[in-house]
Write a protein that binds this DNA or RNA. Structure first.
Lengths: 183, 183
DNA sequence: TTTCCCATGTAAAATGTTACATGATTTA
DNA sequence: TAAATCATGTAACATTTTACATGGGAAA
């Protein structure tokens, strides 16, 4: 019950088409709320029915028309009410943790394969951290001159950076532990 | 597609009833894979049909019979195959991050309410960290004498501890940022 | 005597994923 | 000339959540 809210926030930051939203969910917003384009189109349609968002058709000669979405007053009210409601506890889903505990029931060969997987997984998180740090230098070069929206975006990005650093440290711990088992 | 696997791991660690599994998902396994009892009963039934798990009925005079589940050979094979398959990227869902970015579109009163919420949220994470640390002292007192399963459980718990510490630090950053906006 | 714990489920609704579908434009 | 990008969707399926349902035993 919050993809709606993530979309509302994203559209308030910057109106745009379903396609553009999908790309933001891949890049920026998707750092803390994932969604596919099908889901986004579906939810946008429902929000339109409910009067939360409105679209402006933009013809583009040749390629399909683009519908640029903006937040309408009822949508803003819904968002404000949600912002002031209690934060729900997160539903954690960490597949790798399950696999690590599962490794107790596999043999040394399986654990060797898991080490390779963890190394690959670690590399993807290193990439993610690099992208975050690059984005931080690009979007928040001078901490003193930021407006409210930018400061809030920055503190969320700092959360992402802290998360990735924590994950990398933990994965080193995991690798050392796995390597220590079969020696 | 992994509640099955979390259940298989949990049952290999210790056979038990659906009810017991649900409690483990609230306490231990639920740290990295949440599930309600309804979902667990439902998935157990499907896994039974597929021959992945088998139940032993335990009559208990008075209260309803308990069905104690164990992993059957096909279930073990499924788990082994899954353990050796690539780790899927996590689907991140961080409601608080959405709210923080949304706070740019609320007024000072709304942001004051958010600060209160973040403080409450921070307290729950402090409790979680305390529980993890207590559990660590209880279950892993002497790092030298642990078997494979315990070492793997311990490294996963260390991940939980690292995560909670990171969250607490970040929430301090969030609170300082929010407080800095309306001054 | 009320609340929590044990113990298992059904059913409906909401949410999310995967596969399929189309077709022009731009880039390599 | 092949692949990626822009642009929007439908349909089927799977997963997850929420509400409802039952009932005895133990503890406060």
């Amino acid at each position: 019950m919050a993809l709606e809210h993530a979309i509302l926030v994203s559209l308030l930051e910057q109106p745009g088409s379903g396609y553009e939203l999908a790309r933001r969910f891949e890049r920026s917003i998707g750092r803390f709320w994932t969604a596919t384009h099908q889901q986004i189109y579906h939810v946008l349609k429902r929000m339109e029915t409910d009067g939360w968002v409105t679209a402006v058709e933009i013809g583009q000669g040749g390629r399909p028309d683009k519908r640029s979405w903006s937040v309408a007053a009822p949508g803003r009210d819904v968002l404000t009410a949600w912002l002031r409601a209690p934060v729900q506890p997160e539903a954690v889903r960490h597949e790798l943790a399950v696999k690590i505990r599962g490794a107790a029931f596999d043999d040394a060969g399986g654990r060797a394969a898991l080490i390779t997987e963890v190394e690959r997984y670690r590399a993807t998180h290193e990439d993610t951290l690099d992208r975050y740090l690059t984005g931080e230098r690009r979007d928040f070069p001078d901490a003193g001159t930021l407006d409210t929206g930018q400061r809030l975006q920055h503190v969320v990005l700092r959360g992402g950076i802290a998360y990735e650093r924590m994950v990398l440290d933990w994965l080193d711990d995991v690798l050392a532990t796995l390597r220590g088992l079969d020696r």
